[in-house]
Amino acid sequence: MNLESKVSDRIKSIKPSGIRKFSDYAKTFDHVISLGVGEPDFTTPPKICEAAIKAIQEGKTHYTANRGLLELREEICQYYNRKYHVSYDAATECLVTVGSSEGIDLAIRTFVDPGDEVILTNPGYVAYESAVKAAGGQMVKLPLNEEHEFKIEADVLESLITPKTKVLIMNYPNNPTGAFMNKEELAALVPVIQKHDLIVISDEIYSELSYDEEYTSLASFDEIRDQVITINGFSKSFAMTGWRLGYVLTNPVFLSEMVKIHQLGIICANSFAQYAVLEGLKSCDQDVAKMREEYKQRRDYLVKALNDMGLQTFMPKGAFYTFSNIKFTHMTSEEFCVALVKEQRVAPTPGSAFGEAGEGYIRISYAYSLAQLQEAMGKLRQFLKRFQ
């Protein structure tokens, strides 16, 4: 039997994560400073850990409601109202998921039929493309460029819309670029979204990591509120990547359909992790603020260091990534990163891992200590001498 022939063609068309691919390659070398993975170097705040331990000790290890603990959903909705001025009903408009990744997958599977067109930003986070392919959707790439700080422009968005267009997936603060869209910039997209009845999957996982301006959730615009599926979670802001807990906020009609897939495939998110996050939302604002300030200091150091050594890098206003232009080297982003890890044992991520428009760039994560970043910049500076 030809085992490979039995695998779905849609699944075979999916490429492995370029981020993980290069990270795994870098691990074949000793003493590498890895700057590739977007994972906080902080430990989860103690109050969250203590709440998880307490929940386990009290036997709170059974199934919760499919949608998640009602008390947690209430706290999530209060949080979004308090932080971003968007009101959701905890009983009918909130679903607790296994990380924000499950929420993204649920949204795409729920709304994308074979042949539907889905607009994705390019460069963009790798998981979106894979999920669209698995659903049989047709991808339409929306180019983001450095000249406009990798923001979505309304006229470019509208030029890509056809009668087959159904979904727009957007992610601000942005991975991989660190780009940020403020309220006025998002407002320019609203008439296009409304006019064409687009469903928007708004991945807001980095909302708490906004450094220079107040964050605006796309769903805060009342006229498109029910067209938006808001995805968020706790991995980045609360340093809880391994806990795998996220959530979806959207109108009751959309959410009830998403719950059908969730309850059959997942049943419910981790129960004691839900109790832990409940405590985090109630009492860990200061922990989040402290981590955010540390990221901001690292960002400021890193952007200055990169520009000083000749790597053109715009100032990211959110997330924890820089996206540096290496086109002057006349190397592909993968060639650049391979040479850098071989010669200096420093491993950023090739921009090409995030789509064709990422070619000519490298992504550096500053979710690493300042000491690690300083050491890596010294090595990168040495590597760049060949181009001077």
Rank of each mutant, 00 (worst) to 15 (best):
S13E: 13
K15G: 03
K15V: 11
S23V: 01
D24M: 13
Y25F: 15
K27E: 09
D30V: 00
V32A: 06
P40V: 09
D41E: 04
T43Q: 13
P45A: 14
I48Y: 01
I48S: 03
E50L: 12
I53L: 14
E58D: 13
E58H: 07
H62A: 10
Y63E: 11
E71A: 15
E71D: 13
R73F: 00
R73C: 09
E74N: 13
E75S: 13
Y79F: 14
V86A: 11
A90K: 06
A91V: 10
A91I: 11
T97N: 07
I108N: 05
T110K: 12
Y125T: 12
V126E: 11
A127F: 06
A131L: 13
A135C: 03
G137S: 09
E149M: 13
F150A: 01
E153N: 05
E153I: 14
D155F: 07
T165Q: 06
L168N: 01
I169L: 11
I169F: 05
M170E: 13
M170Y: 04
A179V: 02
N182I: 10
L189G: 07
V190L: 09
H196A: 08
D197N: 14
L198D: 00
I201S: 05
I205A: 05
Y206F: 11
L209R: 11
S217R: 01
S217T: 10
S220Q: 13
D222F: 02
E223K: 14
R225Q: 12
S237Q: 11
V253Q: 13
K260T: 11
G265H: 14
A273Q: 10
Y275V: 03
Y275I: 03
L281Q: 10
M291P: 05
R292K: 15
E294Y: 05
D300F: 03
N307F: 05
F314A: 13
T322K: 02
M331V: 01
T332D: 06
K342D: 00
E343K: 07
Q344S: 00
P348T: 07
S352E: 08
G355E: 03
E359K: 00
G360P: 00
R363A: 13
I364S: 06
S365H: 15
A367M: 12
Q372M: 14
Q372R: 12
L373I: 07
M377Y: 07
Q382M: 12
L384A: 01
Q388R: 12
